[in-house]
Amino acid sequence: MTESVIQLQSVSKIFVTDEVETHALSNIHLDIRKGEYVSISGPSGCGKSTLLAILGLLDSPSEGTYVLNGHAVHGLKTGERARIRNREIGFIFQAFNLIGDLTVYENVELPLTYRGMPGDERKRRVSEALERVDMAHRIKHFPAQLSGGQQQRVAVARALAGNPAIMLADEPTGNLDSANGEQVMDLLKELHKAGATICMVTHDPRYAGFADRTVHLFDGKLVPEGSHGNAQTA
């Protein structure tokens, strides 16, 4: 049996504003195994992004435990969380989130510099990642000089370069037209075939179908598989 990359046990997230408690996530149990391609879907406001933020260590659960790649990470301090984000997680954002001041090459290299990786090794990894997303010919370009689809491919390369335990994609096609959206989804599928573990948030059923397994969220709770009308597996 393949090992778990992500294990969430009884995870809840409660936001408190002006003495009003909002239960964004309630009692979530989730297990994602190595090499798996999981999509999380659900209507707007159901807690998809909150769940992804917790998985990406950008936020912490109010309750429950989170084990990432065999290590409990729910109670870590800020600095340690940053270190694990850098080494274990690759992010792909809806808005690409490239840094405008940096070239394509520098954007992809950025997480590796935070890791203190030697220059030669960084160069090799960046080149490989850009070749995999077919953007090696644009290394000196700035984000503003690229199309949306190209920017997202660079963002994918950035997520790949660090060889993370899991890639977290938050509506990766949300800012793209359908042709570019398809290309990005094909790219993720290729990466998955090559062994990458991917967890993707999407509200688009067409793209959810690219995953091995779809997890549905509704009002902050996981909906048991089979109780949902839509296709849950690819």
């Binding site: 600095g79 940053a82 270190r83 984000r85 850098n86 840094i99 935070y114 950035r158």
Partner: peptide, 16 residues
């Protein structure tokens, strides 16, 4: 601030 968020998401520490 957004750049800080991106860098932070990519693993930059506060010191960095």
């Amino acid at each position: 601030k957004r750049e800080i968020g991106i860098r932070s998401a990519l693993g930059a520490t506060q010191g960095q």
